[in-house]
């Protein structure tokens, strides 16, 4: 009798618009997974409805204070870890300076926004006639370039919870304070600084 592992291994890759969660994990087989999960230890205590993990749960200082704090920590602490993020400074309600020091590529940004692995299109829709698989958990991205400055768009992508503490939109440039991040993703931001800049450049072109 065929074992689960064989069957699971034979699954076709998920179709666009389907396959939520399938194919993301490299390990679907229970036998393979066991050692891993044991090594991972126990659950972190859960506390309340859709709560952010501890780093987020603390009351947020005003943005100006955060900016000052970031500036200070930049001056004091030299980068240590390999996966450390590029430093950035929040000014007002945005991040005015490019994370890479140069402007992004809007065409590449468009491709990224449409790629399911970037995840935007899971929740958002937009002026993208070529794809049927758009989400409606979030506002249509059409006109985003009218509604927001580049600086605001950058902060929104880096950490949307600065705008709305309860938002479901992930923070794309953050690598700590999260719960049970999958092994393949641990310690890494969802997007790189270059990808953030490409997407910011593209969103800025969405005018109507």
């Amino acid at each position: 009798m065929g074992r689960a592992c064989d069957e699971v291994g034979a699954l076709p890759p998920p179709l666009a618009g389907k396959g939520w969660g399938e194919g993301v994990s490299t390990r679907e087989t229970p036998q393979e997974e066991r050692a891993l999960t044991l090594a991972f230890g126990s659950t972190s205590p859960a506390s309340g409805r859709g709560k952010w993990s501890s780093r987020q749960r603390r009351a947020r200082p005003p943005i100006s204070a955060i900016a000052a704090f970031i500036a200070a920590s930049l001056a004091l602490s030299p980068q240590t870890k390999a996966d450390e993020l590029v430093p950035y400074a929040i000014v007002g309600d945005g991040i005015p300076a490019s994370l890479t020091g140069s402007p992004g590529d809007a065409a590449r940004g468009r491709t990224l926004v449409l790629a399911r692995t970037t995840t935007c299109i899971l929740c958002h829709s937009g002026p993208f006639p070529e794809t049927r698989f758009q989400g409606d958990l979030a506002p249509d991205l059409g006109g985003a370039g009218n509604r927001w400055t580049g600086s605001q768009l950058r902060l929104r992508l880096v950490d949307a919870s600065r705008f709305n503490a309860q938002t479901i939109m992930p923070s794309y440039y953050r690598n700590d304070g999260l719960v049970r991040v999958g092994r393949n993703f641990a310690g890494k931001p969802i997007l790189s600084a270059v990808e953030i800049e490409d997407i910011v450049a593209f969103l800025a072109t969405l005018r109507n």
Binding site: P45, S53, L178, V179
Partner: peptide, 13 residues
């Protein structure tokens, strides 16, 4: 509690 707990890189519950 597990149902309400945000988790993962996407931080969703």
């Amino acid at each position: 509690e597990l149902f309400m707990q945000r988790e993962g890189q996407l931080n969703l519950a």
